[in-house]
Amino acid sequence: MNCLGVWTIAIIIYQTAICTVISWLTLSCHFDPNVADLHEVTLMKLLYLYDPDACGRLHFYNFTLGNQDDVRFSAVLWPISNPIAAKFRNEIRLWEFLHIIWVILSIANLTHGKRGCGFYAVVVPFTLTGLAMLVVDIIFMVLFLQDTPYTSSDVAIISYINNSGMNIQWMLREYPLNNMDDDTVPTDTSWISLLFAYWSCRGVVQWFINFWMVKDNYCAGLTAYRQLQKDARLQRRRTRI
């Protein structure tokens, strides 16, 4: 049993396990906001991890604008839909699907990759799935980076979720964000989308490990395939003699 194949399976399985846990927690609505959460964690959940439509329940958010001296405005908001979180749920499903396929193909690559038909039947699909995973990671990272200008504060996040003006309801008739004064200094929360971009690229280091892992397995499979072809040609020559 080759060392590269064993390490490949181990690396892919632990990534798939993490992805499965995150997918289950997200899709089963275990990331709904909690009153005991930190303010920043609540905003993170409201932005990406909490979809009222999918979860079938509402979360009330105490939205407050103010400066160091006094409170300028306060209201209770609740998102009735969240297109950003809905998009994230679809991304999680795609991510999980690719991981599961990758695990299956990594096992097949270890057991059948060096057989006669293994290169085209196993090695190439394994490589293509790995490349698809790498590309999807980059795409997700870019999508999160594109969110950064819209997640610079709780005001920006709520406006981003509201988007069309119909996704959030509040207790007062007047739209609360219109009451923000120039001297109000919101907390910088742009790190939320940057953190998700960092995670989607697997902490950068893991992404490069996956790249070299895919490349090395392809090269090893190609070398084994060429050797099998060479051995087959030699065997045919011997039988003719």
Rank of each mutant, 00 (worst) to 15 (best):
N2C: 06
L4A: 09
L4I: 14
L4N: 08
W7A: 04
A10S: 14
C19K: 04
T20G: 04
S23D: 02
W24H: 06
L25K: 15
L27R: 11
C29S: 07
C29Q: 06
F31M: 10
D37Y: 06
L38M: 05
L38Y: 08
L38H: 11
E40S: 13
T42M: 03
T42N: 09
L43H: 04
L46Q: 04
Y48E: 07
L49P: 02
Y50P: 07
H59W: 08
F63I: 09
T64M: 12
T64G: 02
L65Y: 10
G66W: 11
G66K: 04
G66I: 02
G66C: 03
N67Q: 06
D69T: 12
D70N: 09
V71M: 06
S74A: 13
L77I: 11
L77W: 09
W78E: 01
P79I: 02
P79M: 05
N82C: 00
N82M: 05
I84K: 12
K87G: 13
N90P: 01
R93E: 12
W95D: 04
E96G: 00
F97M: 07
H99L: 12
W102T: 07
I104A: 15
L105G: 01
I107M: 03
N109R: 15
H112I: 10
R115M: 08
C117R: 13
C117G: 01
G118D: 02
Y120N: 00
Y120D: 00
V122I: 10
P125N: 03
F126H: 12
F126L: 15
T127N: 00
L131G: 13
M133W: 07
L134S: 10
V135F: 13
V135I: 15
I138C: 15
F140E: 15
M141P: 01
F144K: 11
D147V: 06
T148C: 07
T148D: 04
P149H: 03
T151R: 03
V155M: 06
A156P: 02
A156Y: 05
I157Q: 08
I157D: 03
Y160F: 07
I161H: 00
I168Q: 00
Q169D: 01
W170Y: 05
M171Y: 02
M171F: 06
L172D: 11
R173M: 07
R173N: 03
Y175W: 03
Y175H: 09
P176M: 02
L177H: 11
M180A: 12
D188I: 08
D188S: 11
D188Q: 14
T189Q: 07
I192H: 09
S193F: 08
L195D: 08
F196I: 05
W199Q: 04
W199H: 11
C201L: 14
C201Y: 06
R202F: 14
R202T: 09
G203S: 05
G203P: 03
V204R: 00
V205K: 02
W207E: 09
N210I: 10
W212D: 03
M213H: 03
V214G: 00
K215I: 11
K215G: 01
K215P: 00
D216E: 04
N217C: 04
Y218D: 02
A220D: 15
A220N: 10
L222S: 07
T223N: 11
A224R: 03
A224V: 02
Q229I: 07
D231R: 15
D231L: 15
R233M: 15
L234Y: 09
Q235E: 13
Q235H: 10
I241H: 12
